[in-house]
Amino acid sequence: MFGFHYRIERSAMGLVGFIIVVASIGGLIEIAPLFTIDETVETAADMRVYTPLEVAGRNIYIREGCYACHSQMIRTLRDEVDRYGPYSLAVESSYDHPQLWGSKRTGPDLARLGNKYSDAWHVTHLNNPRDLVPESKMPAYRWLLRDALRTDDLSDHLAALRAVGVPYSDEQIANAVQDAYGQANPDSPEAAGTAERYGEATNLRVFDGLPTKLTDMDALVAYLQVLGSLTDAAVRTETAGIE
């Protein structure tokens, strides 16, 4: 073995080739099957896509680095299920490009946050968490209420998401901008279209409490309110598997 090595380390190309081969094996064996083995991701017929407003909200969540303090992955452990709700299934993040499972819980898990609090609670909390939770370590995001939401490129966003595998229809892509507006303005004529294209269960509300203006806050709260409710799969299937 060492004699062989003695020869290998005299050849730069040999060393390069060996490093590539030796290093590739693990990844190939662990990752490639995840795309081919069907059981990796459960099927959930009721799985729905994010609305354009929720996509925009998710992008704000990413922009502000909320994932650095909040996980969205409830593990199969009893205390986590008791604290946060049914453990997370793979299918629940199957439209998440990329996933936001997170690795650090400076704040609580948010995988099942949807409908836990009112919109008004979120707006107050995001504006200054210490108004509601004096001990909180979370930053105050006052600019979310101030900044107008950018919507002009939402169709491009949906199209890019379709390119990576999220099943948006042509109609959904074409109407992305007005659907975003409609979702945050339930009394506007656009709202009907949003409900039609994304289902009656879609939240149509003035999320930020400011009827006249579409803000970053609207989008972020719309996103937070659907966390964990894109599918009921987790609630339906779970009792087994908790350790």
Partner: peptide
Amino acid sequence: YSLFAGVQD
């Protein structure tokens, strides 16, 4: 948008 989603990602 990342090519991968969810568990594969």
